[in-house]
Design a binder for these strands. Structure first.
Lengths: 146, 146
DNA sequence: ATTTGTGCAAATCATTTGCAGCAGA
DNA sequence: TCTGCTGCAAATGATTTGCACAAAT
């Protein structure tokens, strides 16, 4: 997957006349090696350990390239920070996002997916993977709150 | 609905020892009178026409109260601005959000709701109204892009 | 040799906060 | 009167951008 993803990214860059730099390579490798929902700053901190001269801006710029290349899915859960997850090779899935604590529960539900697919057809809408999101309150926060 | 909502808000304020000010009243009245997905700045601009001395901060603060009072649902569609919709008296519904142009299509789908309800039960998760969201690309943007 | 990419710092944009005066209860 | 509320402006936090230098092709 990671190899495939990197190749895909290289092809994307070439097709646009963009260059494959050391920074872009390590950022993309990091992105492809981690599952879950990363944000720019987490990647920045992590990369700094090995490449102390890397800049915030480069991470942001590369994440935008990944999104444009359709390798990354932007998942704006709650509040401020943008998070990204891998798009290629992911099974369709959804997220339950707790509005109180920000916790994210991933789920897969075949029946829900089927309904989603039909609904999107009706509206001429092309959903992306990992696009189904339900916000609400998780059990822990309900207990705390009441 | 509007009367009910305002009364509800007054009760909320009283229960917390908060005060009902002129500003809070007009902001809440505006919020309750408009359907759709408002953001703070839109409300601010609109209110300025009648109350030129109103401040940005007051609108933000009052929107946070409305959210806390469970009268408003925060719907963070795309990118930056937070948007709010009425929570009370809304039928359950979902949003299709186009990632390219930001367009929002509202939908209702009973079967999808039933699946959502079951799924949430399984995960001890309490969904809020208007919480189902699917992101992707709308027809117009697909035509444009390809 | 070009021309794009990087790192830095400054700029933006939405939202929050500190504070001195204002106004509900 | 007594606190809480407002408007202003400054602070914050995430992301973007301008620019001179560095590095891919």
């Amino acid at each position: 997957m990671s190899e495939l993803g990197l190749q895909y990214f290289k092809d994307y860059l070439k097709s646009r006349g963009y260059r494959l730099t050391r920074q872009r390579r390590v950022i993309v490798e990091l992105f492809l090696s981690k599952a879950g929902h990363l944000c720019a700053d987490e990647m920045y901190r992590y990369l700094r350990r090995k490449y102390p001269r890397i800049g915030h801006a480069t991470v942001y710029r590369t994440l935008n390239l990944l999104k444009d290349a359709e390798l990354a899915n932007e998942v704006n859960f709650i509040g401020k920070r943008r998070r990204y997850e891998q798009k290629m090779g992911q099974k369709a899935h959804g997220h339950l996002v707790c509005e109180k604590c920000g916790k994210v529960i991933e789920f897969k539900d075949a029946a829900l997916e089927r309904r989603q697919a039909l609904l999107c057809q009706d509206h001429d809408f092309d959903p992306n993977e990992g696009s189904l999101r339900i916000s609400g309150t998780c059990l822990a926060c309900r207990k705390k709150g009441k």
